[in-house]
Computed example of a mutant assay.
Amino acid sequence: MTDTPLTFGSSASADDAELALLGLIAYQELTSFEHLSSDARLSPTLVDREILGRLAVAEFGHFELVRELIAARGLDPQEVIEPFMESLDEMHRRTKPGDWYESLTKAYVIDGVAGDFYSLIASGLEPEARDLVHQVKRTEANADWLRDRLQLAIADHPERASRMALWGRRLLGEALTQAREIGEKYDYFGALQAEGRGDRGQEMTTLFASLVESHSRRMRQLGMTA
């Protein structure tokens, strides 16, 4: 356990930035577990409930993997994770779904953007941490089921499409705002930008453009305009 809380700022080393990213991912996985568990209880069918429960368990397993890596480095996981709790919790308060289908859309959008973001940032990590990030954020199976279930929901009630598309745009805005705020506050992107890869502002512009394009592709798969 460290004697003082960990901080990540403009003078953070690459190691500190890596820990910041791991702390952020750990708490995101824990909150995903909590929200999917809640969504499972509200599922309209037993099959939906079973599958969401399984997805929730997988997210908790991811949380444990990241937590164990932090602990293996001789640090208290709570101290590494705690700085990100307020920001993530506030984002979830601002994006409280109105019904079960908005909950699925939220999982589809937020997890998709987060997975893309972490994977892009992880390119600057040490191999052990980079491999773990890719393992944890490899969510194709989750995304496939969420996409299929949302497509079915729209097919059953086409009027849902416009509401869910509007909701998806709001979620994208919140996810990008949070990513930018956390990145600037803890400067993990700047610290991971090793070996002078280029202008930081241009790197960030390119990264966020990639996030928006990936989100647009996922929404098109639902038959919606992002």
Rank of each mutant, 00 (worst) to 15 (best):
N142A: 03
T206G: 07
G183S: 10
Q178F: 09
Q151H: 14
R200E: 10
P77F: 10
D199H: 09
A129D: 05
E203Y: 15
G124K: 01
G115L: 00
G201T: 10
L88H: 12
A165E: 06
G190E: 14
L207D: 02
R197I: 08
T177R: 14
P97T: 03
Y108G: 00
P77A: 13
Q151W: 09
P77R: 11
T139M: 08
K96Y: 09
K96A: 14
G98Y: 00
P158E: 09
S119P: 00
G74Y: 08
A107L: 01
E159S: 14
I182D: 02
K106C: 04
S210H: 15
D148K: 15
A71N: 07
S162I: 04
W167L: 13
R94V: 04
R73G: 12
G112M: 00
V109M: 02
Y118C: 11
Y186D: 00
R197D: 10
T177S: 14
L150M: 04
S216R: 14
L146S: 03
I182K: 05
A122N: 07
E102F: 02
L172H: 13
R94Y: 08
W145N: 03
L171I: 13
G173L: 01
F84S: 05
G183R: 06
W145H: 13
G201Y: 07
V136T: 05
A179Q: 02
A155N: 10
A155K: 15
L104D: 01
G201K: 08
A141G: 11
D116H: 01
E90W: 05
M85D: 03
R130S: 12
V113D: 02
P127Y: 07
D187M: 12
E159H: 13
S214E: 07
E128V: 07
E126C: 03
T105M: 13
H215R: 07
A155P: 04
L192D: 06
S119I: 01
P97I: 02
Y188N: 01
M91W: 08
G201S: 12
W100T: 00
Q151Y: 06
D156S: 10
L166H: 09
G115M: 02
H92N: 04
G183L: 05
A72S: 15
E79D: 13
R200H: 11
L176F: 06
